[in-house]
């Protein structure tokens, strides 16, 4: 293989990478307010809960949604924590969760409303050690 063939292989790879697939983007839910709190607060390593409050455009609570929660640490290579909840009462959803390590976490909530529309929002959480 000549050096220029090598360059060609590299360019092909670049082209292939440019064709990376795109995930299907769901219909966004409009004017939905999402708030998240953690229990216990401040967060510490161990079992916990995410308290999510959904409010519609005119301030009314939104029930009947399905919420997927995904917690990732800021460091690469850590296993994410996945959890979900459905239903809700007065727009309030309790999602059992677990902080598996202390550090900086990103919690991504994906809300699917009964009409099929969705919305995603990210929250940053700092988790301290179990004994802190």
């Amino acid at each position: 293989m000549s050096f220029f063939r090598l360059i060609a292989v590299g360019l092909l790879l670049l082209a292939a990478a440019g064709c990376r697939g795109q995930a299907i983007t769901p219909t966004p839910a409009e004017k939905l307010s999402i708030e998240m709190a953690v229990e216990p607060d401040p967060a510490r390593v161990g079992e916990a809960a995410l308290i999510v409050t959904l409010t519609g455009a005119n301030g009314q609570p939104v029930d009947g949604a399905k919420i997927g929660a995904r917690g990732d640490m800021s460091h690469a290579g850590m296993a994410p924590v996945l959890a979900e909840a459905e239903g809700g009462q007065d727009g309030r959803y309790r999602i059992p969760f677990e902080w598996t390590m202390s550090g900086d976490w990103f919690v991504e909530l994906t809300i699917t409303l009964p009409d099929g529309s969705t919305m995603t929002q990210r929250f940053d959480v700092s988790v301290s050690g179990a004994g802190s």
Binding site: V9, G10, L13, L14, A17, G18, R20, D72, M73, S74, H75, A76, G77, M78, P80, F106
Partner: peptide
């Protein structure tokens, strides 16, 4: 090839390390 893919994902992919 792996390095090229890493660079592409690093610049164009989700900016979440995990």
């Amino acid at each position: 090839a792996a390095a090229v893919l890493l660079v592409i994902d690093g610049f164009t992919g989700p900016q979440m390390a995990a």
